[in-house]
């Protein structure tokens, strides 16, 4: 297996150097394997199964890197469908990993997005970016925009804000507690929705409700 991986996918050694590794029947092989592990920087030394898993993962990664462009197109098009990414500059420089997150240009970009979205700036621009992405995901997809229009008209928004009441003798503290608890409830709601979705998915496989009128009997 290891030999196949090296031959076909990993190709760490040149073809001539692989001779020793290919000779799996020799007594030397465990040693050779150890050396090979060192050469490819495998972090696992004890468990063989874990080692094998690492090698497979490594091979997949290499394979992916080779065909990076192809895969990214697939992922990219999916992402496009899911949410309207409003910032074309990021989309065009597609291999995101190659971006220099600390460059001034990037920071400026983030700041201008934040300005556009009315997100308060944080000293760490990465956190600001996170806030922006959250806002884009939650508020700027089609559903949310539709919903926002209806919510704005109904009274429920203001009502929720009155919701929980704390009385700790400090209005600031009370408001902070209120905000926190509302956020917490929202988190819980999302979690519960996901749980429900999972249950429904499982139900699609298992459910088979039956009734049989003949069994029924009215008592005295």
């Amino acid at each position: 297996m290891i030999v196949w991986l090296e031959d076909q996918k990993i190709r760490h050694y040149t073809i001539d150097d692989r001779q020793k590794l290919r000779d799996i029947t020799s007594l030397e092989w465990p040693k050779t394997f150890e050396k090979y592990c060192n050469d490819v920087d495998c972090p696992i030394t004890k468990n063989e199964i874990d080692q094998l898993e690492w090698f497979i993962g490594y091979a997949i990664r290499l394979e992916f890197e080779d065909d990076c462009q192809k895969y990214q197109q697939v992922v990219g098009s999916k992402a496009k469908d899911k949410k309207e990414v409003k910032v074309p500059s990021i989309k065009s420089t597609n291999p995101l990993d190659n971006l220099d997150f600390d460059s001034d240009a990037f920071k400026n970009g983030v700041n201008s997005i934040a300005k556009l979205l009315n997100v308060p700036k944080h000293s760490d621009h990465l956190i600001t970016l996170q806030a922006c992405s959250k806002l884009v995901c939650n508020k700027l997809n089609e559903d949310a925009i539709k919903q926002f229009n209806s919510v704005a008209k109904s009274k429920s928004l203001t009502k929720t804000i009155i919701g929980p009441s704390f009385n700790m003798g400090d209005t600031m503290l009370d408001n902070a507690a209120k905000g926190l608890s509302l956020l917490y409830i929202q988190d819980l709601r999302n979690l519960q929705t996901k749980i429900n979705e999972t249950i429904v998915a499982a139900q699609n496989i298992t459910a088979n409700p039956k009734t049989d009128i003949k069994l029924g009997k009215v008592g005295r």
Binding site: K210, T211, L215, G216, V218
Partner: peptide, 15 residues
Amino acid sequence: FDHIPVGVGSKGIIP
């Protein structure tokens, strides 16, 4: 009343 059996000694319609 037809769907939900009632009373002492009643039997349900779910097998």
